[in-house]
Amino acid sequence: MNIIVCAKQVVDVSEIKVDPNTNKPILAGVPQKISDIDKNAMEEAIKIKEKHSGKITALTVGPADAKERIKELLAMGADEGILIAQPEKLDYYVLSNILAAAIKKIGEYDIILCGEASIDLFSGQIGPRIAGLLNIPQITYAQDITAEKEKVVSERNLGDKAVTIESSFPVMITVTKEINEPRLPSLMQILAAANKPIHDWSAEDVASEKLEPKITTVDIKGVPMERKNVIYQNDIDESVGKLVDSLIKEGVLR
């Protein structure tokens, strides 16, 4: 079984601060990590490989330091990594076309796994776009995957419904955060990962046409959160009394 896991390096959103003067998010210096749900995708790939053997390729479009993130995926259990240097101009269209072209170049694949959405931009477009470009079936928001030899059965979580769907290979599946608990690699695995290959590709290596973004980001506005932060922390009865008085003053009790 050949499995491709698409994984994105993102800024750790919990570390972002908003600049009080410009009212814009400060992104410089924010630590980078693998988008949370992509680790769930990786974990799912490992489980499938444990059952059917095969090969897992971790695929990332990103800056040079994303190599460190790929190493984490190799330590978890990917067999090899591919880092495609991020072109200067990027949007959902460009990115998905690069990924789809890279997947075509990899050539042999049964299952492509993505996260339901990245934790920084959260568009949820990339998985379904890849499936559309490759003209293969897509299963999104998977909360359960059972891979068999010739097919996969997966349960989609649509909130108000759960839909169980079966597909032959190749198939693109996006997973939810709830599908599994990603493993933490052991020190041995981290060391062993140093010997696994990471290939450097460029967008030109894979895509036949020059890709121009369809969308421009014209502004990014911060949304500062200003709250009173009145915290009561002594005697519970007293705290409760004070809180109720405050809420009455605020006029929110009726």
Binding site: Y93, G124, K214
Partner: peptide, 23 residues
């Protein structure tokens, strides 16, 4: 932007080589 809508819009955008903005 329900779940079906988002996966549909994204796949459709791929077919049309189009831009798409979700949510």
């Amino acid at each position: 932007s329900n779940k079906n809508g988002k996966e549909l819009a994204s796949r459709l955008a791929a077919k049309f080589k189009a831009g798409c903005i979700t949510d």
